[in-house]
Amino acid sequence: MSYIFQDWNANKNNLKGRIVMVLFRLARPASINKFFRIIWLPYLAFYKLLVEWFMGIELPHWTTVGKGFYLGHGHALVVNGCTIIGENCFFRHSTTLGNIRYDDGSYSGSPVIGNNVELGSNVCIIGEVRVGNNVRIGAGSVVVKDIPDNAVAVGNPARVIRMITPVEQETSIKKTPVEA
């Protein structure tokens, strides 16, 4: 039961985030093997219909998402299913994490997001990009290159504008978010 509600406290006062993350955690066992996928098929159809079509949040059930994921505002989120998201991450609306389609029809790898990462609204992270731990990425940024640990990045293309300490990261998230 704790697995299903591992994002509950992170989404305090965010009913939509709580609902989506509980539904996501309930759908996740279908990615274990074909047997579970067959058993979960009716639920997966419900998940896809409600979360993707009605709520506008594309978070495939096979995506790896660490505990404490906060879904701020919860509109127009698009996450490639092969993306890996660490623990205690905070994603705002209109965020896209995806891969690149090459001219020959093949695709790049998907982003890997570290722990304690905060994304402003309209952030795009495209390709086989690694975002380190304790990173803040400003609203409207387009990330196409790796971002190191303990960094603040902004712009199109995103560039690191300063380095922060983990303690400063924790304090700044509570006091001055990238975008509210």
Score class of each variant (00 low, 15 high):
K12I: 08
K12L: 07
N13D: 15
N14E: 14
N14P: 01
N14C: 09
L15Q: 02
L15N: 03
K16E: 09
K16W: 02
G17Y: 05
G17H: 01
R18W: 07
R18C: 10
I19P: 01
V20Y: 01
L23C: 14
L26G: 02
L26K: 00
A27M: 06
R28W: 04
R28P: 00
R28K: 04
R28M: 09
R28Q: 14
P29Y: 11
A30H: 06
A30E: 11
S31N: 06
S31C: 11
N33L: 11
N33G: 09
N33D: 15
K34V: 04
K34Y: 12
R37Y: 11
R37G: 03
I38G: 08
I39S: 06
L41N: 12
L41K: 08
L41C: 12
L41M: 13
P42W: 08
Y43S: 09
A45N: 11
Y47G: 05
Y47D: 14
L49Y: 08
V51S: 05
W53R: 02
W53Q: 10
W53E: 14
M55H: 02
M55N: 05
G56K: 01
I57H: 04
E58S: 12
L59I: 15
P60A: 10
P60V: 11
H61M: 05
W62P: 00
T63F: 07
T64D: 13
G66F: 08
G68I: 10
Y70Q: 04
Y70D: 05
G72P: 00
G72F: 04
H73I: 07
H73C: 08
A76F: 06
A76M: 09
L77E: 10
L77D: 10
V78M: 01
N80W: 03
G81R: 01
C82E: 14
C82K: 02
T83P: 01
T83R: 00
I84W: 04
I84C: 07
